[in-house]
Structure formats: C-alpha cells, structure tokens
Nucleic acid binder design. Structure first.
Length: 283
DNA sequence: AGACAAGCCTGTACGC
DNA sequence: TGCGTACAGGCTTGTC
C-alpha cells in the first residue's frame, strides 16, 4: 500500500524520466481507473501533445504537470503501480492506462504504464491554480509532514481541538497528508505513544516526540525507497523493491519482540485497521 | 472456502 | 442543535 515514502520514490523516478518529454499517446483502458470526472476522454484530449514540466506529490497523490496548466493526477491506492516500459513490450495483466512520451529508449520513446489489480487507484485530469499550482480536488488534504515549515508547533496546531485516538488522526488525510496504516504504526512506535491515546490528552513533550518521529521515520523510509512487503505489490518505476521493510519495528510483526524492550508486539483492531504496537514501551 | 489486507468514500449512530 | 468522531459497509483481487 503505497504511502508517502513510496509515492515520493515513484515521484522522483517519474520526475527524472519524464520532465521535458512530450506526451505522444494516452490509452485510457480501465473505466474504473478513470471514474472521477471529467473522465477518460478528458485525460486523453487534455494531455495529448503537452510537454511535461514537473512531477509533484501531494499526500499520496502524484501530479504530472503539463504545459498550459493541465495536471494529470494519479493515486495508486492499494495495489497501483507505475512502471516504465518500451513501446511494444508485453503488457502485464491489469494494465489500465498507458502514457507514451517521446525520447528515451534510444529515441524510440517510452511508456509509463499504470497497473492496478484491485482497481482502487485512479487517474484524472485537472487544472492547476495559476498562482499557487494547487489542484482544486486536493485542497482538502492536510499539511505535508516533510514540508520544511511543518515544525512541532504546526503539528500542535493540527492536533489542537481534536478528539479521538491518535492513530485515527495520523492516518486521516484531511489532518495530515500521506501517512497510512503502515507508517502510522511505525511513527507511533518511534514516538513511544500508544495508537489509542486520546489526542486531547497529549503533553507538549509528547507532541514534540511525535513530530520528531514523524519526520525521521518518513525521511528514512524515503531514503530506503519505501517498503515492499511480501503481500503487497509495491515496486518503483523500474520494478525494483524498496528496502525499508527491513527497518519495520512493529508493522505486521505481531508476537515478535519489540526491538526496544523485547516484549511481543501486539496487534489490535483500531478503526477497522490492523494496528501493531508495543504495549510496554508505547504509552 | 472464506477471511483478510488496504485507502478512501458514504451512510448512520452517538456523544460532548 | 450540530459538529466531529466512530464504525460498518462497499469497492476489489490475490493470498493464506
């Protein structure tokens, strides 16, 4: 399940591979992938012939910025992959979109293919705000945890006046953008905070720890090019695995010793999601 | 065979 | 009252 570190890895790969290239073909194959308005025909007509200016990320969304202000927005959701391929190369099952660009592969052009068995992922086209570059559909997202301006005070402002459990807030994209089930658990372990802690009972020192853990956990996961677990299909643009899974402390490690205190990691169900934590050293 | 995994959306219930 | 929070269900398919 791609979260911020995985999406950021793919973003970097796409940026390096696509900027300056022109879109020479768009195949919108999967109806469900293009379910969001304005739909598949709009993606094709508004992207075709455009030059790619940048590839940005907002939360778990990728934004391919085209000249003229159009933006192709992609979300991998659970099982989506973006893979570079040579034109004519065999198409994998569950390929729902193919974007062709000029240049590369010795000038024969390249393709970026969207493969997504569960079809939760989506692609749509939007128009960036001319002044800010913001995409209107993504305006409801919370702040970026790795934004340099996102300090402990900014996190405290996100938490202020909120109720409920800490983990539910961490994975709520309207509060913070990009954290999902896996990194939510890893961040809370690093912060030594229980996932079911009440948001409104956090001390200032605990918020400081949470901020520090958020930044270090996500940054290190980006350096390690994300997590590729056995039961998920995360790969980078070139089909390579990430390596942060070897640094997981609690996620999917029920019964295994906590790396800090040795007590077995517990799994509970929180907000309908499997949640892993150490009941001894997370308070 | 059926439970499970997950992100995100929607509908509904509930409590401060 | 109303808002925000919790929870369940839906979507989907590969894996155990």
């Amino acid at each position: 399940m791609p979260e911020l570190p995985e999406v950021e890895t793919v973003r970097g790969d796409l940026q390096a591979a696509l900027v300056g290239r022109r879109v020479t073909s768009v195949s919108a194959l999967g109806a469900r992938t293009f379910r969001r308005p304005p739909g598949p025909a709009a993606v094709v007509s508004r992207a075709l012939g455009r030059r790619i200016e940048a590839v940005d990320r907002r939360g778990k969304y990728l934004m391919v910025r085209l000249d003229g202000g159009e933006v192709v927005v992609l979300h991998l959701r659970m099982s989506g992959q973006l893979l570079v391929a040579r034109p004519g190369e065999a198409t994998r099952p569950h390929t729902h979109a193919v974007i062709g660009v000029d240049g590369g592969h010795d000038q024969g052009g390249s393709e970026v293919r969207f493969v997504d068995p569960r079809t939760f992922g989506e692609i749509f086209v939007s128009r960036a705000d001319a002044a800010t570059g913001a995409v209107p559909e993504l305006c409801g997202l919370g702040p970026e945890p790795l934004d340099p301006g996102f300090d402990a005070a900014a996190l405290a402002a996100v938490l202020a006046g909120r109720r409920g459990r800490l983990k539910a807030l961490l994975v709520d994209q309207r509060r913070l953008a990009g954290i999902g089930n896996l990194y939510g658990d890893e961040i809370l372990w690093a912060a030594r905070l229980r996932p079911d802690r009440a948001v409104d009972g956090l001390r200032r020192s605990e918020i400081g720890r949470l901020h520090e853990s958020m930044v270090t956990t996500l940054s290190e996961a980006v350096v390690q090019r994300g997590s590729s677990l056995a039961d998920e299909g995360y790969l980078d643009l070139y089909g390579r695995l990430g390596s942060y899974q070897s640094s997981h402390r609690v996620y999917a490690r029920a019964g295994k010793p906590c790396p800090r205190c040795g007590r077995p990691v517990t799994r509970v169900r929180l907000g309908g999601r499997g949640t892993y934590f150490c009941p001894r050293c997370q308070r």
